[in-house]
Design a protein around this nucleic acid. Structure first.
Lengths: 122, 122, 122, 122
DNA sequence: GTGGTCTAGACCACC
DNA sequence: GTGGTCTAGACCACA
């Protein structure tokens, strides 16, 4: 993982889990790594992981079986999708469009760049 | 200005000036408000403005005429454009496209949303 | 440290760190004193240290491990050397040579003075 | 003139006059431009010129004939030489030598660079 | 604990 | 008048 970014680490961890859910790498009922395991694995302070899991628990994406660990909640994928989608439509896109306007980037260019991106990521 | 956002004020000020340059509200050679003026005007501590101006000076977007104030530098618009554009193409767009992939949002939808946005902002 | 000089304190701090890197008193990966520690140690306001560290971070000589402190970056010594060397060759030396010309100081004298200096500083 | 440098303008003006004296472009008894003339000529606030002239007067390099203007004083060239020389030997050179030590620049290189400089400035 | 930001207020050099 | 620097002290997010 890139800790280089300026986004808070605990948010990056949460994001990562949400993405794994969306690509169905993690499914409802799956157990996620314990706080200590994950912390050791990604070289991070356990408190940071606690915060990420706490956030996801509050969003009802994880739930905590006391003494057993954290599990992907029922309906997690839908919730994850709504969460991401809302953020994308209401936060990200407006800014993107505003910037395009400012830089006078036409939609055509955006589409072209999108094609490029898809070809690369295949 | 919206101090509501969680972005640092000094960055918001800098951003604002860059945008004014991009829409040619500010042009090379124009004098910007003095530190104290701007601070009073937007209800902010002068040191905060100093920080913004310092940043923009280092980016060669502003330059300081000793004892007279800050002026929009020659070529500021090009520098501003490159700055914003680079950030947009290398930071923002890849994330946007990745999210679209994750949420399975097709390009069509993106284009439609863009049209909506343009109609609203007119 | 000599606060007597009229050079800004935050620049003196940065210079001092750069020198410590050049004489390998500080090496890549070493942790530097925390902002508060250094501030207390050299009797200076923490904000002043923040400014120094910020400068060095931007120059990629320090990097910040979130919540842990500042560390000497990889390749810091090369960057420090280039920085100092460029300044010396492009700013300092031309002025020195110009002054020598003006005062009609021959190279011989310069060399002699250099020997003297080395003997003293041994 | 380059107002770009970070040296104070009034010091740059004074320096310039001292240099003109050292290369005997200005000689004892010569009248220098009036404050207003010089200020207009080099696009600078008259107060700044006043300060430069004041400095040089205090150093007995200029003297003021009230109502007539400023003139190069008797013995100005010697005083100018001593001034520059002292500054050079006591301020500049020690720093230069210290930097050379830090960057491990041998005397040979210094001499070579000096030759280069002389060839260029011829 | 770490750094990041902001405020209020001061002093300074310079134009 | 201008900006540049520094202090003291506060609050915050983060690890």
């Amino acid at each position: 993982m890139n800790w280089n970014e300026h986004k808070a680490i605990y948010l990056q961890i949460a994001d990562h889990i949400i993405e794994d859910i969306l690509i169905e790498k993690l499914k409802s009922g799956d157990r996620v790594a314990s706080v200590r395991e994950l912390a050791a694995q990604i070289q991070v302070n356990p408190n940071t992981v606690v915060r990420s899991y706490g956030m996801l628990e509050q969003a009802a994406i994880l739930h905590n079986q006391r003494g057993l660990g954290f599990y992907i909640a029922e309906g997690a994928i839908e919730k994850a999708r709504v969460l991401k989608r809302t953020e994308f439509l209401e936060q990200t896109l407006p800014e993107v469009f505003k910037t395009m306007q400012l830089l006078q980037i036409p939609v055509n260019e955006l589409i072209a760049l999108h094609h490029q991106f898809q070809n690369i990521s295949q």
